[in-house]
């Protein structure tokens, strides 16, 4: 088995199963009725947390690949990103169904008037085209350049996700600030990289 095959047949399935663990935990506790006194709040917080975690894990792939020099990591990125989308879907479904019971009035009011929901909802909507264009065929159809430009939206989405959390809490800022800190590291790494690159390529034209 060469490295390519090891990644394909061993690493990827293992990571796939690991990414499903939070979901399995949720289903298990749901069936056993162990989601606490306020199950909708638990579901909402839990799926939101995992969406943010997977967004940050996905954003960590490139820096980790550069730091370790191991290119194999890149092969996990799409799957991790799609898991972020998966947990975001659960999160949004919890909101639309269990929290608002698909009441158009209440949802519209929330999305239009409550900044944390506006930002969260917009971030989710931006995730959709990224998920749709994640296949090899779509990358080919769009062309690498355009595809990459589109997928830079993930920076905005991650910022939106963290802001959504920050604006939602009452006074316990510790958790959202932790996410903000990790996100700042991950984006800062890219910024520094981009600034170093610029003079080396002699590229001074506006991008």
């Amino acid at each position: 088995m060469n490295e390519n095959q090891r990644i394909r047949w061993i690493l990827k399935p293992l990571v796939f199963v690991a990414c499903l663990v939070p979901f399995v935990w949720l289903v298990r506790n749901g069936i056993w009725g162990e989601l606490g006194a306020n199950p909708v709040e638990t579901l909402s917080r839990y799926t939101g947390d995992w969406t943010l975690r997977f967004l940050l894990i996905t954003l960590a792939v490139t820096p980790l690949r550069r730091l370790t020099g191991w290119q194999g990591l890149q092969r996990l990125r799409r799957m991790l990103g799609l898991f972020a989308f998966f947990y975001a879907c659960l999160h949004v479904t919890t909101y639309l169904w269990l929290d608002q019971f698909f009441s158009p009035g209440a949802i519209a009011e929330d999305v239009l008037e409550r900044p944390y929901i506006t930002v969260g909802f917009a971030s989710f909507l931006m995730l959709i085209p990224l998920a749709v264009t994640s296949t090899r065929a779509m990358i080919r159809r769009l062309g690498g350049r355009r595809w990459q430009r589109l997928h830079r939206l993930v920076y905005l989405i991650a910022c939106g996700g963290v802001l959504h959390f920050l604006w939602l809490v009452k006074s316990d800022l510790a958790q959202p600030l932790m996410y903000a800190f990790v996100l700042a590291l991950l984006l800062g790494y890219r910024l520094v990289g981009a600034m170093r690159k610029m003079p080396a390529h002699g590229n001074t034209s506006p991008g």
Partner: peptide
């Protein structure tokens, strides 16, 4: 930041 029109009754209202 959120509506006060409705509320969830703890321990009684089911998930659905």
């Amino acid at each position: 930041r959120w509506s006060q029109k409705r509320e969830r009754r703890i321990g009684e209202d089911s998930l659905f």
